[in-house]
């Protein structure tokens, strides 16, 4: 794709498509996206090491790490900093806050991965990645993207909630309503045909109308 100045933009990842593979230097050695095949991955970027909002986020991600592991989800961070900066920062977090950072962090000094995933928002900063979250499933498909501005730290509850919602959708072939939490009723996908619509109201779901039916899982 080209803009009016004729500059070429890379095609950015889109939901439902294969997440672009990469090989990157991280605090846990050189990793490829394909190394995570078979498990979920949350790939997230932060603006810079040794900054306060990012520090709170790293602590937040470390705090939900065990919950993510229970859901077969790995985490990997990224910023345009060197691996030595990352190592120094995660050690500093452990010294100052008593929190060990258990996940790898990509040192994307040449912006390869950041560019591939569209993590740099030039309107905010040309030298830092914004707070992006990419949820990639065990087949390498990009399932969710969230973007936060430089000034707003992410909500870890929401990240866990998205994982729970996506995994519930995959397991039960349902959708999840606004503000859904595990254990609450889920949405039965609307019937795709007139015949199915007529049947829907006889199927014992909690329906407001033919297109709006909920059910409790396990029923």
């Amino acid at each position: 794709m080209e803009d009016e100045l004729g500059e070429r933009y890379p095609r950015l990842p889109r939901l439902g498509e294969k997440a672009p593979d990469f090989e990157a230097v991280t605090t846990h050695g050189t990793l490829k996206l394909s190394d995570f095949s078979g498990s979920w991955l949350i790939l997230f970027s932060h603006p810079a090491d040794f900054t306060p909002v990012c520090t709170t986020e790293f602590i937040g991600f470390a705090e939900i790490f065990d919950e993510l592991q229970l859901r077969n989800v790995n985490l990997m961070g990224l910023s345009i900093d060197s691996v030595y900066s990352h190592i120094s920062w995660v050690r500093n977090i452990e010294e100052n806050f008593g929190i060990k950072i258990p996940f790898p962090v990509i040192a994307d000094l040449n912006k390869d991965v950041a560019s591939l995933y569209g993590m740099i928002m030039p309107g905010e900063s040309k030298t830092e990645t914004s707070r992006c979250v990419f949820v990639i499933d065990p087949d390498g498909i990009l399932r969710a993207m969230i973007y936060y501005p430089l000034t707003t730290g992410r909500n870890m509850d929401e990240i866990l909630r998205i994982i729970d919602a996506l995994q519930t959708t995959d397991r039960h072939h349902v959708a999840t309503p606004a503000n859904w939490r595990p254990g609450e009723s889920v949405i039965v996908p609307p019937p795709p045909t007139q015949e199915a619509a007529e049947e829907r109201l006889k199927q014992g779901f909690d329906c407001k109308d033919w297109y709006f039916c909920k059910k409790k899982l396990g029923e």
Partner: peptide, 12 residues
């Protein structure tokens, strides 16, 4: 060791 670390280590 996590599988992603093992895969990377095997390559090395």
């Amino acid at each position: 060791l996590p599988l992603f670390r093992v895969r990377s280590g095997l390559r090395d």
